[in-house]
């Protein structure tokens, strides 16, 4: 796992790591969301993201060998390709959480459209399947963004989150996809004008990453060679 993966596999790992880590962060809300209904909703979204991560890891494992679990849990922290956007710890801040949720889903929609166009039929097929589920995540995110934006307090908190996280959201994508995201955000979130900023690029991990990795892998590391 130490030599760099070929570009197509690296792309799969980026997608898988983003979905795994976002699902991980989403499941931090399980049991402590502002409404019981949101405990249930966020847990459900977390499960879908983890399911997508598993499917991408399985495709990456075709080339790299090993299993989805080994790719998800047994790499060194510096080997993960996740974007800083998904790594940020946002509990218990619901305003920033919804800001990330809506920015991620809008960016992911652009990315999944690319995946659907992949020349690899397995990858393209997975893109189709994922898109059907992500459509519900987008509706959930948009509903919450609109709902918060209806009040002064909610809008203030949401927009502060969007401003802070916008450079991170850009960093999730590459090339002209970034321009598309800027246009989509302006259209879907009319109460927010995306500023021109330097994207926070993938490659560096955020400060909270080390603690996340420690926690995510601690059980596996507690009994090496175990079966779980």
């Amino acid at each position: 796992m130490s030599s760099p993966a070929p570009p197509a596999v690296d792309h799969l790992l980026r997608l898988a790591d983003d979905e795994l880590i976002l699902g991980w962060r989403d499941s931090e809300w399980t049991g402590i969301a502002p409404f019981l209904e949101e405990d249930v909703a966020f847990s459900s979204i977390a499960q879908t993201e983890i399911g997508h991560a598993r499917a991408f890891y399985e495709l990456a494992a075709r080339e790299l060998g090993g299993t989805a679990d080994e790719l998800a849990f047994d790499r060194r922290p510096e080997e993960y390709r996740s974007s800083p956007l998904v790594e940020l710890r946002l509990v218990h801040d619901w305003g920033r959480t919804i800001a990330r949720h809506v920015l991620y889903e809008l960016a992911d929609a652009i990315r999944i459209a690319e995946v659907k166009g992949s020349p690899d039929p397995d990858v393209a097929g997975l893109g189709e399947k994922i898109e059907r589920e992500e459509a519900y995540h987008r509706m959930h995110a948009q509903m919450w963004a609109d709902r918060l934006a209806e009040s002064e307090e909610g809008r203030k908190r949401l927009v502060a989150g969007l401003e802070e996280l916008w450079p991170y959201a850009l960093g999730l994508l590459e090339g002209e996809a970034r321009e598309r995201l800027t246009a989509d955000v302006a259209e879907r979130l009319p109460f927010f004008t995306p500023p021109e900023v330097e994207p926070v690029e993938r490659g560096e991990h955020v400060d909270e990453w080390a603690a996340l990795w420690e926690e995510m892998t601690m059980v596996r590391r507690s009994a090496p060679g175990g079966q779980w």
Partner: peptide
């Protein structure tokens, strides 16, 4: 323990 679960 959701956060520490050892497999997907």
């Amino acid at each position: 323990w959701i956060l520490r679960a050892p497999t997907l």
